Amino acid sequence: MKKIINNPHDVVPEMVNGMVRSYPQIIEKIPGTEAVVRADKESMKGKVGIVSGGGSGHEPTHAGYVGKGMLSAAVCGQVFTSPTPDQIYAAIKAVDQGKGVFLVVKNYSGDVMNFDMAKDLAAMDNIEVKNIVVDDDIAVENSTFTQGRRGVAGTIFMHKILGAAAQEGASLDEIDALAKKVLPNIKTIAVALSAATNPEVGKPGFVLKEDEIEYGVGIHSEPGYRREKIKPSKELVEELVGKLNDEMHLDGNKKYACLVNGMGATPLMEQYIFANDVLNKLDEFKITPAFMKVGNYMTSIDMAGISLTLFEIQDDKWLDYLNYPVTTIGW
Rank of each mutant, 00 (worst) to 15 (best):
V105G: 02
I306P: 01
E247I: 07
H249F: 01
G216M: 04
A190G: 07
A257K: 06
T328Y: 01
G154Q: 10
P204D: 01
E14N: 11
I313V: 15
M124S: 13
R149P: 14
N126D: 09
L319Y: 04
R38I: 00
C258H: 01
L250A: 03
G163D: 07
E222L: 13
L208F: 00
R21S: 12
D136W: 07
G100H: 09
I230Q: 01
Y225H: 14
Y324F: 14
I92R: 05
F274L: 08
G205I: 01
F206P: 02
N107R: 05
P223F: 11
L103A: 07
P60Y: 13
Y321R: 03
G305Y: 02
I219A: 07
I161Y: 05
C258Q: 06
G218T: 10
G18E: 02
G77R: 12
M70H: 05
D86K: 15
N198C: 02
T299M: 05
I4M: 10
D173T: 11
M298Y: 06
E34M: 10
M15N: 06
K254H: 08
S22G: 14
T197V: 11
S72L: 10
S233N: 12
N185G: 01
V152A: 10
N107V: 10
G55Y: 06
E270H: 07
T197C: 00
A153N: 08
H220T: 06
A196V: 02
E141I: 13
D40C: 03
V217N: 01
A192E: 00
V104F: 14
T33V: 08
K203E: 04
D137M: 05
C76K: 02
I138G: 11
L103Y: 07
Y321A: 05
K293H: 06
I50W: 08
G55K: 10
I156A: 08
L279E: 03
V134T: 11
T61R: 04
M1F: 04
P204V: 00
D137V: 08
D10R: 04
V217Y: 01
D246W: 00
G218P: 06
K317P: 01
A192P: 00
K181N: 07
R150E: 01
G305C: 02
Y225E: 00
K243W: 02
K93N: 11
L319C: 10
E235W: 09
I175N: 05
T84W: 02
Q147G: 09
A177F: 00
Y65Q: 02
P325D: 07
Q87T: 11
A94S: 15
K187H: 13
V16E: 12
D116I: 07
T155G: 05
E222A: 08
I329P: 12
A195W: 00
F311P: 14
G202V: 07
D96A: 10
K255P: 02
Q87V: 15
